[in-house]
Nucleic acid binder design. Structure first.
Lengths: 356, 356
DNA sequence: CACCAACGTGGATACGTTTTCAAGCATCTC
DNA sequence: GAGATGCTTGAAAACGTATCCACGTTGGTG
């Protein structure tokens, strides 16, 4: 097992300098005959440039980082597939981290990526802006996907409700009062406002009045959109949040059903929440859609397998990942402000008319 | 935005040589007071050693590669989460690639990892042994998870059936005749033989006689185990293979149901296949389990959401990933031959008694 | 007192690449 | 014909780290 050929070996074998070999392989200028000879020798030696040398020289690692809360969340898996597809097309590596929805782990993973000199990062953020400031300061090119980091928590507004208001203002492009947005990071997100609004209107049209929102970490925008869609007097009890885990999602769903037997419809902010809602409803002998209607964010393959098949707000997870990867790779020019992808309400069988 | 501090900066600020700093940070020997001062200065400068420099020097990238066919296959997502958890605990990066079940893409990704000098790799292989020989030859520490690569195709045996026989012999630890196994790679796999056998016996106990196996790429071992479990005269029509895509899985399932209306039970070799089987059965107005019983490999969260909830052969995906990562990291000593994890038949509602 | 072992330390080198710089050479222009 | 211009080329200098080696100091033993 002899070591791999280096650029030096190629240079010697071809009778040229290393600089010439580098130029030829990087697409620089060289005379046709030199180019041909170098190429031939390189192929014959099965030479592959070492990313290590190159990276050290240019003081940056190629490729990109990808930070996701949880891969077993099918939507995140779809998003990751999109990123991987784009990276594969570009021949670039992707270093992946799973944060478990925990800002602290997220922070550690950012540190790890910094150490690796990975300077391009796609993230479905879990922490708030304070978590992300270090990465930005370190000169990373960051693109957020699916969500934006929450505003940093401060004394006055640390409950989901007021965060939701903040996010809603953000949603409108309105500067959030005295605190201007410190992070200027492009993002690829779905049109949560339209998605939620369409779903709520659909449920309204079926006669539902008491509609609940079941959210997870990072669903503040959706919660805000929900509040806006149902109208001014939001029943705070009808907006509940779980933490990242499946257990927590189940507990939140079950708690919601039990504490508010009067609700007749639920909007789940993500597929893990939707899964929990189905499970909790079944456990409590609530029939879907007879007793409670359900619409779930994310169209995942198994939504169709449920019975009844789940009515969902579909967002293009794969595209989202692909676009984010494109954005982070072509960050040469000025970066676009952000991309918003459309959502689509796919009506299956989990919503029925309200029965008083 | 000034550049990050280097070891040189630390050395100067601490009034010592770079070698000393390196030693202190790598746990080498140094006098207590020197160590303390260096540590203090390093912390004060917020110094983080650059992985680039270290990697180049040691001619290898830390961390590990992970190659998986498809992340939207929930089982692979679970496995990936296991790998990531172990890597996170070790503070090592993971570079991920998704092969789409295509040996060619797999080969390209291996090349990419080689270029990155990633010398540790966990793979759910799609290609055969010929695909993997280059990686081994290049000195990579490879650990296969969930499956083993198929034998290289040759003139005599390129159909699934005879491959299955080969794999069965492998399963038994019997050398496959004249062709000894060329790859000596540790692996972490589930006890497919026991898992399948338990499932088949269970179905048999319910009265089923015509049982089909629906497999995907890489399920040769399971197909072989299935053949062994149902007994000598295997009805070849009852063992069908799909390629990696969901469409192909659906087509295979639908074709199976249509061509063999006499079958009364199906064993799906993976969760994507199981998903396809449920969909195809529904489309053909076959009721589960009344008309056809179904047991699916992989316990995934949504198996419980189906109606009826799916009876599954559970294999510990997360553990599998975690163990594989441990194996590939602690490859210092002699590597163990491989790990086999237990499976468990989880009986839910998708299997019923045979109705003639 | 002299010698040796052990230890802490810093200078120097190598890892494989890209990029700068200047030199060599041919062609073109006045 | 002399100077200017363009192109190709190779030597050399980084990039940030780990490690070899030699040097000095200390403590102990002969």
């Amino acid at each position: 097992m002899d070591r791999r050929a280096t650029i030096k070996d190629v240079a010697e074998a071809a009778g040229v300098g290393v600089a010439t070999v580098s130029r030829v392989l990087s697409g620089g200028s060289a005379s046709p005959q030199t180019r041909e000879r170098v190429l031939a020798v390189a192929a014959q030696l099965d030479y592959r440039p070492s990313a290590l040398g190159r990276n050290l020289r240019q003081r940056r690692t190629g490729g990109m980082g990808l930070l996701v809360p949880d891969l077993t969340d099918t939507f995140h898996a779809q998003l990751a597939e999109g990123v991987l597809a784009c990276a594969r097309a570009a021949g670039e590596p992707v270093v992946l981290g799973s944060t478990g929805g925990d800002p602290e782990q997220e922070s550690e993973l950012i540190g790890m990526l910094l150490e690796q000199s990975v300077d391009r990062l796609i993230a479905v953020p879990s922490g708030d802006e304070d978590t992300w400031a270090p990465a930005i300061r370190a000169g990373m090119t960051v693109v957020f996907a699916d969500r934006l980091p929450a505003r940093p928590s401060s004394d006055e507004d640390d409950d989901p409700a007021s965060r939701a208001v903040n996010d809603l203002m953000l949603l409108d492009g309105v500067s959030a009062g005295a605190r201007p947005r410190p992070l200027d990071v492009p993002s690829v997100v779905a049109d949560d406002r339209a998605g939620i609004r369409t779903a709520v209107r659909y449920l309204r049209g079926l006669g539902h009045r008491r509609i609940a929102f079941l959210g997870g970490p990072g669903h503040d925008r959706r919660a805000a959109a929900f509040g806006a869609a149902v109208g001014a007097p939001v029943d705070e009890e009808l907006v509940v949040f779980a933490t990242g885990s499946r257990d927590s999602a189940y507990a939140a769903a079950s708690g919601l059903f039990q504490s508010r037997p009067d609700l007749s419809a639920v909007v789940a902010g993500g597929n893990v929440l939707g899964e929990a809602a189905v499970l909790a409803a079944r456990e409590l002998d609530l029939r879907v859609p007879r007793d409670v209607s359900l619409v779930m964010y994310d169209d995942v393959p198994w939504a169709e397998l449920c019975s009844p098949p789940l009515t969902v707000i579909a967002q293009p997870g794969r595209d989202m990942g692909y676009r984010a990867a494109e954005l982070v790779l072509r960050s040469g020019g000025r970066r676009p402000r952000g991309v918003m992808l459309p959502t689509e309400l796919i009506i299956r069988g989990s919503c029925g008319p309200h029965r008083p």
